[in-house]
Structures are given as C-alpha cells and as structure tokens.
Design a protein around this nucleic acid. Structure first.
Lengths: 343, 343
DNA sequence: CTGAAAGCGCTTACAG
DNA sequence: CTGAAAGCGCTTACAG
C-alpha cells in the first residue's frame, strides 16, 4: 500500500500537479505550500514509484552514451558485457543506451563520439579516458558548458570536472599483492616485478603499491628487479629467463599487467612453475588457465562486468532519480582468486 | 525507440489486448493468430516495458514474505540489510515485502509465519530453513498444493520442492581454505581444525572440504586434530591452549565457524598470533578486527547482503517477469579477504 | 502560483 | 476468440 502522489494531494487539499512541483523542486509554487506538502509527504512515508515516473518520462527519454576504448582486449570485452546488462536495465525503464566500441587508444575517435552524442541530444556519457589535453578540455566543457555529465571508468583523468570515476584502486591492488607475497614466502627471499608499459599509469600504480608495502612492512623480502615487457609475451619470457639466471634464489614474481603467457610458459619450460610464487592481475581467460594449472598462485582483479555496469547505472540514477553518486572515486572491490574460488 | 505493444498491434492488425494474450500465453486466442503475433514481436525486437507492467499490476500486487532465523547473530543482521535493499527495489515496482525476524532456531515460528503469509495472500516466500520434518512437509505443501513458491537461503533443505537455494558452497569454501593453508605453510607441517557444533551441517561441510582437499592434494600437511567449540569462546580458547601444548610444532589453524575471539585472544596471549597461520570464515566485525590486526591471515566468506538480496529478487523475477531461476543451487561467490582488501 | 487533463506501456475486467 | 475502455502513478504542457 505504498503512498501515492494522489493520496498526498488529498491529504494536503491540493492537486497532484502541485504535489509534484513541491516534491521535485520545480518552482512555481508558494514556499509555505511547498514546505507543508514536503512535511506531509515525509510523514506519510512517501516513496516515489519508479514505474510511474519511468512511464511518464517515456517521451522525454533518458539517453546515455558509452564510449569504450581498447576493445580488442579480452578485459574490455568483459566490461562490455556489464555495459550491455546495464543497457537492458535502462531500456526496460524506457531509456536508451548507445555504445561506441573503439580499438586501441584513439582520443580523436572518443571526442568524435562525444560530439555525435551531444548533437543527438544525449544527456549523459560514460567513457574510458586516455591521457590527452584536448580530451581533458572537452570533458570540462561538456560538464560545464553543455551540462552533460561525464563518468570516466577503467582509468581516470584527474583534475577534470567528470562526475566520478569507476575503477580499481590500483595502488591498493599492489599492496594486496605484497601481502599475498608475504604469506607465500614466509616473509623472506627475493622477488621481482614484471610490468607492462612504463606509460600505463594503472600498472605503474600497482607496482608502486607493491613496492611501497614490501618496503614498509616486509623488510625480509628483497625486490631484486623491475622490468617492462611492453605488453609483449616474447619479451616477458626473455625477462623470466634472465631473472632465473641472474637470481637463482628468486622465489616470487609479481606481474602487474600483460605478459602472463610468456612468463608462465617459460616457468613451465624451466620446471619452475610449481615452486615459483606468482601473482598476476585481471581475470582474463588466459590468466585463469594458468591459475587453474597452478602456475599462478593468486590472481587479483575486479569484476569487469561491474566496471561496465556501474557507470551506466550511476548516470541513470543521476538523470532519472536525480541522485548524484556519493563519492567521486567509485572503487571496485579488490577480488582475490585462487584455483579454488574461480567460480 | 523501444517497440511497444501498440506498435505490434498495429503491425498485426489486431488490438493491444490480443497482442497481450498472445505474448503472455493467456489463452483465449486463435493459435495461428498467436503464432503470427509472436513472430512479428520477435521480428520487431519487442522487449516488454517493466515500468508499464509494474504500473498496470499495481492493483494485483506482488507480495513477498521473508522469514529470517538466527536474528541475534551479526551475520544475519548483515543478511537483513540485503533483504531491506531488495525490499526497496521491489516496492519501487509497486510490490510488497514483509519480513519476519526470529531469534534462534524456531521451526514452529517459521511455520506460523508461513501460515500468516498464506492467509494474507502472499505469492512467494523466502526463508532460512532448519532441519525439521514438519517444515519439510510444509514447504512441499506450499509449493504443490497452494502454488506458493519457496526459496530457501543461508541453509538448505534438500529433497524438498523448494524453488531454489541461495547460499555458500560450504564444501568448496573448505577446499579454498585448504588451498590457502598450502600457500602459507609451503605444503608442510601440522594443522588443526576448530569447528562449531557437530550438528551444524554447514560447518561440517566446510570441515570436510578442508580435510578432503588436504588429503587429496597436500600430503605434506598433517591434520593433527579436530575439535568442537560448541560456539563457545571460552571453550575455543581452551582448545587452543591444549593444541599448543600437545602439538608444539603446530603451524596452522582452520576455524570453520564461531570461536574466533577465543582462538585469537589466546594466540595473542601466548605470543603466537603473528606466526600461527589462521584461516577463518565469515565477514563479521569481530573477525575483521582480527584480520586487520594480523592474527587471522585469511578470511573466507560471502557477501552476506547478496545472500539476503538475491532470494527476494529471484521471487520477484519469477512473479513479475515469469522468469524462473536457471539453477537450483544459487551459490554465492566465495570471497577471500586479507587485511589489504577489506574494502 | 495552482489545477485539470492528457498520456506514457501495460493488464484486466467487461462486452460482444 | 477478439476489441474497446479503464486505470496503475507519475510528468508535462496548457489554462487560468
């Protein structure tokens, strides 16, 4: 028996329209009437019906655009799944979600998509950013000048006017890896890091989280080397070969990003796959395969689908329920998987 | 631009009512017309609007009852939060959710609540079961005779006609603990288990999962003892004292259920809190405290809120969208936490 | 500043 | 077996 606008109108002795104006701050109403209606609504425990609102707003549709980069990667394919789920949800409420899939990093294409969305009258945009001065400016402009809220996800563009950012706390993910390394090694021994691109801020941040925590909390562990695979499997495998030669006592490897296949194949070839303590990131099929086999001991990641789902829902809640996100940084849960809880 | 019933009606040259009858299998329609309409709907990519349906069904409300036992425990308090979230969701669609909170285990009270819900015309019930012959019979009766679907959660009552069960795969949780113990101990040494009640099937299943995996996969680890704390902190602490006396080489402890406080305090008192490898279950505040301090190394659990949320949503989807759950066993994700990803 | 009316997409009696 | 109409709770022009 949820309370309806009608019932409040009767209780207050006014029309539904007036209640609507009062409760949704639409103006054109005498302040004392507004006050009184709000009080009555509160007293009656009024909760607006999303269904009613959705239907009434079916004409003036809510339109959300989503722009994805790096679509050639399996990770973003998983993110896409979350976006598609959210799309269905939003569309069942009469909204529209349009998705742009971009391969690689192409700020120009992102901006072109933004432009198209703006022209077509979309009211909110979620996008995976990349470091680019023009894009930064565009984000601020959309937010300020056009009043189109922007949510970034997967990566951030700090110091812009974006509404919020959905993504992993990469520094904390690195610290988490450090903690796991400690548990496995008993707090002693030599470990090494294999990272991806020097230019990838997410990977660098994981690496920093890892080294910071090791240095602060685990003095018995020595980080002997940090190398970059440049996202190339062959390079990654070469790095491992060198590591094993240079540091015969090496007991653990932390892989911040790509290169898992190269690392694991080489460890297997050299008969080190069962004894080396390996921690990697992201729940990609390739990675899960090595986790299952036992070459990777721990995989740290996030629910990629959540990362795609959340930005769309955040925008929808803002536009539909006028409910802004509480925090600027919407960190996804840091998930730890072993072969036993792969799901 | 979602397709509406109206548009299909026009395309098919019939009325909205007829399209409704065809698409929702309400009968009273010529089979060939039904076929044709279904085909047209498919071709046009019709997706029913939840908002429209919700509004139209506002009279004939969907009413879901939730019966919770063990409400004195912090775990169930968390589950309750998930139930309340789901309640809001359902009510924003015009449904009703009524919650019964029972302390301890009281099958009679559960059945009384069921009876009340049935009399009031509720259309679905989610409940935390307990082993009881009468309750088993009731569940079957509600499902079969009254046509009221029942979802059990937190625990199961196997071989009943319940729609499905939402809960943890406790055996797999035990295996997961075994895997973590292996990582921490390097695969060698003596470990012991502290369990709760012998009569608690969930705990026994965790214990079995743990011992099974150790025996099958980690022959270097010896399980030296299994004791029951009967959910008493004092007993738990006594057990630990004995353990340390009997097995001075003891390197790991697996706590399947309650007793965490007793165990951890004693370990701390005896100066073993930093060296002993401890794995426990469930994300209770007490447990998280010991995780943070470093006495517990790994905490295995599930998102308790999800466990409360999901049964309600499953019933709602069944009743509102006519969409039955895909699987009988709806296992919640097995979550691993260290002090670094407590969230 | 306020009210009366139309309409969003669907379901449900009620006629035929 | 099929259609026309009412109504669910809300928003939105349009009058006043």
């Amino acid at each position: 028996m949820a309370v309806t606008l009608q019932q409040i109108a009767e209780a207050a002795g006014v029309s539904r329209g007036t209640v609507d104006r009062a409760l949704n701050n639409r103006g054109r109403i005498r302040p004392e009437v507004e006050e009184r209606i709000k009080r009555i609504a509160r007293e009656m425990g009024y909760q607006p019906s999303r269904a009613g609102r959705a239907l009434a707003m079916a004409k003036r549709k809510i339109r959300i655009g989503v722009i994805l980069q790096y679509m050639e990667t399996p990770f973003m394919q998983q993110v896409l799944k979350g976006v598609l789920e959210a799309k269905e949800e939003v569309e069942s409420f009469g909204g529209t979600v349009k998705i742009y899939e971009i391969e690689g990093v192409e700020p120009e294409k992102v901006m072109a998509a933004m432009e198209e969305l703006r022209e077509k009258g979309f009211n909110g945009i979620a996008l995976t950013p990349s470091e680019d001065q023009l894009l930064r400016a565009r984000i601020d402009q959309y937010q300020e000048e056009y009043g189109i809220p922007i949510v970034t996800f997967n990566a951030d563009l700090e110091d812009t006017k974006r509404l919020c950012i959905v993504g992993q706390d990469t520094f904390q993910a690195g610290r988490t890896a450090a903690g796991l390394m400690w548990e496995m090694t008993g707090g002693n021994g030599q470990v090494a890091i294999i990272s991806g691109q020097v230019a990838n801020p997410g990977l660098i941040s994981r690496q920093k989280g890892f080294t910071t925590e090791i240095k602060e909390s685990f003095p018995g562990i020595e980080i002997v080397d940090i190398r970059y695979s440049y996202d190339d499997e062959w390079v990654a495998s070469k790095i491992v070969e060198e590591f094993l030669e240079l540091y015969p006592e090496l007991t653990g490897i932390y892989i911040t990003g790509h290169g898992v296949k190269g690392v694991c194949q080489t460890l297997q070839k050299l008969g080190k796959d069962k004894t080396m303590h390996v921690i990697a990131n992201d729940f990609l099929e390739e990675n899960l395969k090595w986790l299952k086999e036992g070459t990777i001991n721990f995989l740290i990641g996030q629910d990629a689908a959540v990362q795609g789902h959340s930005p769309v829902i955040i925008l929808f809640q803002l536009l539909f329920d006028s409910k802004a996100p509480e925090k600027e940084y919407q960190y996804t849960d840091i998930v730890i998987r072993t072969k036993y809880n792969m799901g």
